[in-house]
Design a protein around this nucleic acid. Structure first.
Ligand SMILES: [Mn+2]
Ligand SMILES: [Mn+2]
Ligand SMILES: [Mn+2]
Ligand SMILES: [Mn+2]
Lengths: 220, 220
DNA sequence: GGTAAAATTTAGATAAGTCTAAAAATATGT
DNA sequence: ACATATTTTTAGACTTATCTAAATTTTACC
C-alpha cells in the first residue's frame, strides 16, 4: 500500500533524476513539490522503509527498482488520461495536466490497461511526451529545440519542453500545435528571436524563450 | 475545500437518509463506512462547522442544502464513471463499483459535464440506478421486486437492489441482466423460491433472496 | 586547511483522521 | 418509574503529513 502523497514524491524523484542521473537532493524535491526540506526528509525515510528509494543521510536519494516501476506506472497513467481527455473529451492541451494529476492515482491496473487499449495504445501524450507501455518501455525520438535550428532548416513540432498554461495558451494564439510544420526564415543574433514560416502559410515572430521550448523533428 | 474522507461521510449520510427520511444516527454511519462511532462523532462535528450537515448532540444528523448538493454530485460522478467503465471499457457490472468509488472524487466539474455528454447523457447506471443531471434531478421509475409478482405476470429487469459482487456474479451465471424479460411460472409458498421463464427461452429456479433483489418493470 | 555559506537533518508542534476505553445521555421493559 | 441496555459522546492516544526553528553536516572558497 502506497499513499497518494507518497506517489507524488516518487514521481517528483523520477522527474528530477530524468534530467540528471545522480542522486536527487532533498532541496530539489522540496522545490519541485513545494514543501519544506524538513518534510521531504521525513517522507524520504518513510519511502526508504517501504523500499521505494535508496537513502543515505546527506547523500540524496535514488529510486529502487520497485520505486522506479511504480513511478513509471504513474507517468503512464498520467499521460494516458491526458490522451483520453484531449482525444475523447475534447479538452485543450493546456487544460488536462491538473485533472490528470488526480486521475493518475486511481489504483486499478486493469483500468489502465483497458484504457490504453481503448485509446489505441498511443505512444505519445498531447504534449508529445512518450507514454510507457505496460512493461514500462517507451519510445525516444530525436528532437531538437527550434532555437538550435539554422536559417533555412524546416521541421515538425513533436513536443514542448514546458507544459504551463500561459505557454500553451500563447502557442494556441499563434496557431502552433503538435504536427505544425515550420521553417526558419530569419534569426536575430542580438536576442535570439526568429521569424518562421508556419505550415507554408504565415510568417510569425517568436521570442528566444518560445523557440527554446519548442521541440521539433527535422524534415528529411 | 472538502476532503476525500469528508466526501465519503456525506455520501454515506445521503444513502442512509434515502431509505429513511429522519435524522441519521451515528451508529448507522459507523456501520456503513466501517469506522468507530467515536470517529463518526468527530467527523460530524467537522462537517457541521463546514455547514454540510445539521447536527444536534445525541439527535443525529441531516444534510444541509449545501451537503445534499455535494452528495448528489458525488452520486452523479460515481454512476457516470460506472457507465463509462461498462459501456466504453467493457468492464462487467460487478467490476465497476470499487473503481468508481475512487473516480467519484476527481474534482473537475468540467470533466463531469463533458463525460456526461460523451456518454450521451445516460439516465441510468449499469445497475439501473438513476443518474442525477447537472441540476441534481433524476428519473424515478415504477419498479417492483420479482418477489412481489404473482404467477403469470411478466416483467423486464430494470434494476438490482444490492450491488455486491457475489450477487451480480450469480446473476451472470444465470444469464440474467438488465433488460432480461421474465415471467413468473410458479411460486413456492413454503420458502418463496420461484420458477421463471427467462427471455421466453429457459426456465430457471430462483431463491426468495434473489427474487427480492431483482427490480422489474411490469410488461404492459 | 579552516571558516563561512549552503544544504540537510533533528526537534518539537499542529491538523486530519482514526482507534479504544470510559462517561454520559437516551431508550426500553417490566 | 426506575433499573438496565443501548447509543452517543468525550478523553486520551496514535499515524500521516505538514510546518518552523535549531542543530548538524557538507561544500565552497580564500
Ligand atoms: Mn501532464
Ligand atoms: Mn503531458
Ligand atoms: Mn456503485
Ligand atoms: Mn451503480
Amino acid at each position: 500500500m502506497i499513499t497518494h502523497t507518497e506517489e507524488n514524491y516518487l514521481k517528483a524523484i523520477y522527474k528530477i533524476s530524468e534530467k540528471d542521473k545522480k542522486a536527487v537532493s532533498t532541496n530539489a524535491i522540496s522545490e519541485k513539490i513545494n514543501t519544506s526540506a524538513a518534510s521531504v526528509t521525513d517522507m524520504i525515510k518513510r519511502l526508504a522503509t517501504k523500499e521505494m528509494v535508496n537513502y543515505e543521510k546527506y547523500k540524496g536519494v535514488t529510486l529502487t527498482d520497485k520505486g522506479n516501476k511504480h513511478a513509471t506506472n504513474l507517468i503512464r497513467k498520467h499521460r494516458l488520461w491526458e490522451v483520453f481527455l484531449v482525444d475523447q473529451l475534447k479538452f485543450n492541451w493546456e487544460e488536462v495536466h491538473d485533472i490528470a494529476e488526480e486521475m493518475e492515482h486511481i489504483q486499478s491496473q486493469e483500468l489502465v490497461d483497458r484504457l490504453d487499449n481503448y485509446l489505441g495504445n498511443p505512444k505519445f501524450d498531447p504534449h508529445g511526451d512518450p507514454i510507457p507501455n505496460a512493461e514500462g518501455r517507451y519510445t525516444l525520438r530525436n528532437q531538437i529545440a527550434l532555437s538550435e535550428f539554422s536559417v533555412g532548416e524546416a521541421g515538425t513540432l513533436i513536443g514542448v519542453k514546458v507544459h504551463d498554461r500561459p505557454f500553451l495558451e500563447h502557442l494556441n494564439s499563434l496557431n502552433i500545435k503538435l504536427g505544425s510544420e515550420m521553417s526558419l526564415v530569419e534569426k536575430n543574433n542580438y536576442d535570439g528571436a526568429v521569424t518562421i514560416l508556419l505550415d507554408s502559410e504565415n510568417q510569425k515572430m517568436l521570442s528566444h524563450k518560445v523557440c527554446s521550448n519548442l521541440l521539433l523533428r527535422r524534415n528529411h
